[in-house]
Design a protein around this nucleic acid. Structure first.
Lengths: 103, 103
DNA sequence: CTTATAGTTCGATGGTTGTCGAAATATGAA
DNA sequence: TTCATATTTCGACAACCATCGAACTATAAG
């Protein structure tokens, strides 16, 4: 089944969410940690992200909200911590739209 | 052959180039006109883009330069007119990077 | 050469954004 | 409850951006 089409306003929002180098780095970090989760069962904790990047906690919080707002990730509170998971559907929709007019 | 990997700074640049709704619209318009070109031989002229969108010529010129700067399109002067063509390689590189950690 | 059309460059402007520190909130531990 | 850690909200600020009109350059037609 092909993923349902995405309107352009939303797509622009997703692109904007990934247009800041730091935020893109954060996103790819979450992706990688999610891969690890698939294999080892460990999850992606916000606190680890904050520790491993050179940004302040408020900035990271803001970036994660932006990624979440664009539908790229979802966040869930697990006790004291926050867990981030990638929303693969949204990524697929972007890929689908980028496939337009492919050779 | 898999496309060569793209560094993150460049990827962020590409994302930023597509993060403005109007500019995204322009890009997809160029993609569509390039598709038509493949079938009918007609090309994508800047003057037509300017006529069919609600932006001034200076703004469109600026947007096209941004798309070109990101490597998403190339422009070529054909006599009095400017022709825009999609750079499929760049799009493929973006798609490749978005494939990271896919289910 | 003059005119008309296509496109770019420039300067300005209002709006958005990434980042920070400080303060507030949330949650679990002692 | 009190404390420590995790996260969010707030206010601010400099930097950036999308858009515009005016002026400039380029190319072709007459």
């Amino acid at each position: 089944m092909t993923p349902k089409p995405m309107n352009m306003t939303h797509l622009a929002k997703v692109m904007k969410a990934l247009s800041s180098p730091k935020r893109l780095e954060l996103y790819l970090d979450i992706v990688k940690k999610n891969e690890g989760c698939y294999k080892t069962g460990s999850e992606c904790f916000l606190t680890d992200i904050i520790s491993s990047c050179d940004l302040g906690a408020p900035t990271v919080s803001h970036h994660l909200k932006e990624l979440s707002n664009a539908g790229l990730i979802s966040t869930e509170r697990r006790g004291k911590y926050l867990v981030a998971t990638v929303n693969h559907e949204t990524v697929e929709e972007v890929r689908a739209l980028l496939s337009a007019g492919r050779k």
